[in-house]
Design a protein around this nucleic acid. Structure first.
Lengths: 140, 140
DNA sequence: CTGAATCCGACTTGATACTG
DNA sequence: CAGTATCAAGTCGGATTCAG
C-alpha cells in the first residue's frame, strides 16, 4: 500500500499540510479528518473500541468492561460508531432481549493508527509531565 | 525499545488493551493516553500544529493560517500546547510587540502518529460516508 | 436486558470590547 | 500586535426514570 508509514517524516508532513486546505469550511463532512479526530477525541470512543477488540460483546458486558460509563453515553457512543460503520449491532430476539456489538473490518482497521497515537502518548508522557511541571512552576 | 510498530496488528492490540487498565481512574494525569487523546480531539489543536509545521509563525499569521479561529481560542490552545512542551513561545520586544511560536522537537515528533491517524481518515472517509448514508436512510 | 426520554449542571466555544 | 476580560450560547455528560 502507498499509505504513509507512520514513522516516515516526509509523508507525515504531506498529510499534515492537507488539512490546512479545509480551514474555513464549515459544512460537516467537508473535512473527514476533523470528523474522525473529533470522534477519537470523544471521551468513551476508544474505551469502547478497546472493549470490543477481543471479540463481540453485549451491552452490559461492554458497560462493565469500560467501567464508569453511563448507559446514556454507552448507547450514544455505540450509535455513532455504528453509524460510522466501525461497529455492527445485532439483536437477538431472546426472552430477555440481548444485543451484541462487534468491530467491523473497518473498525478493526482503525485500531492500528489509534494504537500508534496511544503509543506515542505513552512514550512521551513523562516528557509532557516534565514540561507541564516546569511551565506551572514558572507561571503557576 | 519494544514499542509497537504502528502498522503491526498484534502490537496494536497490546497497546489498545493497555488503556483498559485505566478505566475508573479519575485522577487527571493518571492516564497519559486519555490526556493526549483529549488534546488531539480538541477543535483547533491539529490546525495549529499544522500551521506551525512549515516553520515558526507569529500570532496573527497563525490566526490567518488557521482560518476562523477566535483570538480567545487561539491563545488558549497555544497555551496548552506550550504547557505540554509541544510548542515554544518567544517574545520579541519590538515596538509593536511580536511573539513567535514554533514546534519543539517533542511537538514535531507528535506529527507522525497524528499524520497516521489523519491518513487513515482520508483513506477510509468515503467508506464512512457510505456507512452513514446507509444508516441514515435506514432509520433516518 | 437494552435502551429511550428528560432534567440539569459543568465545561467549551464564540463574540465583543478593552488593554499594554 | 498580542493578548485579557466578560458574557452569552451551545454542547457534553451524568443521574434518574420509564418502556419494550
Amino acid at each position: 500500500m502507498t499509505r504513509a508509514q507512520p514513522g516516515n517524516h516526509d509523508d507525515s508532513h504531506a498529510v499534515l499540510q492537507r488539512i490546512a486546505g479545509y480551514r474555513g469550511a464549515p459544512p460537516p463532512g467537508a473535512c473527514p479528518v476533523r470528523d474522525v479526530l473529533d470522534r477519537v477525541g470523544q471521551k468513551w470512543t476508544l474505551l469502547i473500541l478497546a472493549g470490543l477488540e477481543t471479540g463481540p460483546a453485549r451491552f452490559s458486558a461492554l458497560q462493565r468492561a469500560v467501567g464508569d460509563i453511563s448507559k446514556r453515553m454507552l448507547t450514544q457512543t455505540l450509535r455513532q460508531l455504528e453509524r460510522d460503520g466501525l461497529i455492527s449491532r445485532e439483536v437477538f430476539p431472546t426472552k430477555p432481549p440481548s444485543v451484541e456489538y462487534a468491530l467491523t473490518p473497518l473498525g478493526r482497521s482503525a485500531l492500528a493508527p489509534i494504537a500508534a497515537l496511544m503509543d506515542w502518548a505513552e512514550t512521551h508522557h513523562d516528557r509532557i509531565r516534565d514540561a507541564r511541571a516546569a511551565y506551572d512552576a514558572a507561571e503557576g
